[in-house]
């Protein structure tokens, strides 16, 4: 019996290892298939800049756009922010910001400091819309077409390479 107890660490390790093998096949940036090609969920959330003003799904859709999930607590968002600014300013991409589980003052300060690339900013303090959209962290970026259908999701930082190899082709493909 005493000897069997010593096998315990090994017995704990094996299932963990199996899970890790399985995790390797999973792409953390993959969109859960349930949401792909489905309409963006409806919502009613305040604007980041104007707490009184409620934004709805209808206020956003109309042309194709990127919906960028970000927060001031997210260091990767800091890294990608200059690229968002570049996309909005130099390439004229419409980007909607989804400020996710954040503090309003901190978020406003950030946009003031680092320039605001967002055509509209939705303030999702409880992560409600984030939950509906299957967000699991920040930054994440959704590509939504003019009919309001989610066509693609990118998890992680947007940079030059991601833009040229991933997002730009997707944006060109859809209407």
């Amino acid at each position: 019996m005493g000897r069997l107890k010593l096998f315990l660490p090994l017995l704990v390790f094996i299932p963990l290892a199996i899970l890790l093998i399985r995790a390797l096949d999973l792409d953390p940036s993959e969109l859960p298939s349930a949401l792909l090609d489905k309409p963006m969920p409806g919502f009613e959330l305040p604007s980041l800049q104007e707490p009184e003003r409620m934004l709805r799904r209808e206020d956003l859709v109309g042309e194709k756009m990127l919906v960028n999930v970000w927060a001031t607590w997210c260091p990767s968002c800091m890294v990608e922010h200059p690229w968002l600014v570049k996309l909005a300013r130099d390439y004229g991409v419409k980007i909607v910001g989804l400020n996710y589980k954040d503090e309003r003052q901190a978020a406003l300060g950030w946009l003031q400091r680092y320039e605001n690339p967002f055509a509209l900013s939705v303030y999702d303090v409880d992560g409600k819309l984030g939950l509906d959209m299957g967000v699991y962290g920040a930054p994440e970026t959704f590509v939504v077409d003019s009919a309001g259908i989610i066509r693609f999701k990118h998890v992680g930082v947007i940079d030059d390479k991601v833009w040229q190899e991933v997002l730009q082709p997707v944006l060109q493909e859809i209407d």
Binding site: L19, R22, A23, P28, P32, G134, Y136
Partner: peptide
């Protein structure tokens, strides 16, 4: 996050 994903918990 990895374990939940691997077990299809979301």
């Amino acid at each position: 996050p990895i374990v939940a994903d691997a077990l299809d918990l979301g």
